[in-house]
Amino acid sequence: MMTRLLVSVVDDDESVRESLPDLLREFGYAAQAFSSAEEFLASEYVEQSRCLILDIAMPGMTGPELHRELIRRNNKIPVVFVTAQGDGSTRPKMLEQGATECLSKPFSDAALLAALTAALKAG
């Protein structure tokens, strides 16, 4: 039996945490959702995650701050940022900081699957 790759979702929006893991499972991945960067960092799933779908703007530690912390810890997990508040400069800035992709909410299933595929190939 093949083990499903774990994709973790970190987003303070409850509707995203409820819907995105279901979609990820439909894509064939295992999924875990976290309401904050701090919750993710305290979990047992940091080392198991093969990709991170990460909201940019969250209370407490932001998505980019979590990404930098993971890099500081030498955890090179591929990151797909998602945001509802981005402007034209957000995506290039996130890509420059090492993200695989940055999607604006709402994004299509196809866009998410393409970003995940790219992230997992890169990782």
Rank of each mutant, 00 (worst) to 15 (best):
35 S>F: 06
38 E>I: 08
83 T>H: 03
93 K>Y: 06
63 G>I: 11
13 D>R: 07
11 D>F: 01
85 Q>A: 12
76 K>C: 10
115 A>M: 10
43 S>F: 00
18 E>T: 12
52 L>F: 01
123 G>C: 09
55 D>F: 00
89 S>Y: 03
39 E>T: 14
38 E>N: 10
32 Q>R: 15
89 S>P: 06
80 V>G: 04
22 D>K: 14
123 G>P: 06
77 I>A: 09
56 I>M: 04
80 V>I: 15
10 V>G: 06
1 M>L: 05
61 M>W: 07
103 L>F: 05
67 H>K: 12
14 E>A: 12
34 F>G: 07
103 L>S: 09
30 A>W: 02
96 E>Q: 13
101 E>T: 11
60 G>D: 09
63 G>Q: 05
42 A>M: 08
68 R>M: 05
20 L>C: 09
3 T>E: 12
65 E>T: 13
51 C>M: 11
47 E>I: 11
74 N>H: 15
41 L>H: 04
9 V>M: 02
42 A>E: 12
82 V>P: 01
62 T>Q: 03
118 A>G: 10
2 M>D: 08
11 D>I: 05
91 R>Y: 00
79 V>H: 08
75 N>E: 09
35 S>D: 15
58 M>T: 09
105 K>Q: 06
93 K>L: 11
108 S>H: 07
1 M>G: 13
116 L>I: 15
119 A>W: 00
63 G>S: 07
18 E>A: 13
21 P>A: 05
65 E>H: 03
41 L>G: 07
113 L>C: 06
69 E>N: 10
80 V>M: 07
68 R>T: 14
13 D>P: 01
90 T>P: 12
63 G>D: 03
61 M>L: 14
97 Q>T: 09
98 G>P: 05
105 K>N: 04
60 G>P: 07
105 K>H: 00
47 E>K: 14
45 Y>K: 13
114 A>S: 12
85 Q>L: 15
85 Q>I: 10
63 G>F: 01
17 R>W: 02
3 T>G: 04
111 A>K: 10
14 E>L: 10
103 L>R: 09
28 G>N: 03
9 V>I: 12
109 D>T: 14
107 F>W: 01
13 D>M: 11
28 G>E: 04
56 I>Q: 06
18 E>G: 05
43 S>R: 06
87 D>M: 08
101 E>H: 11
97 Q>D: 11
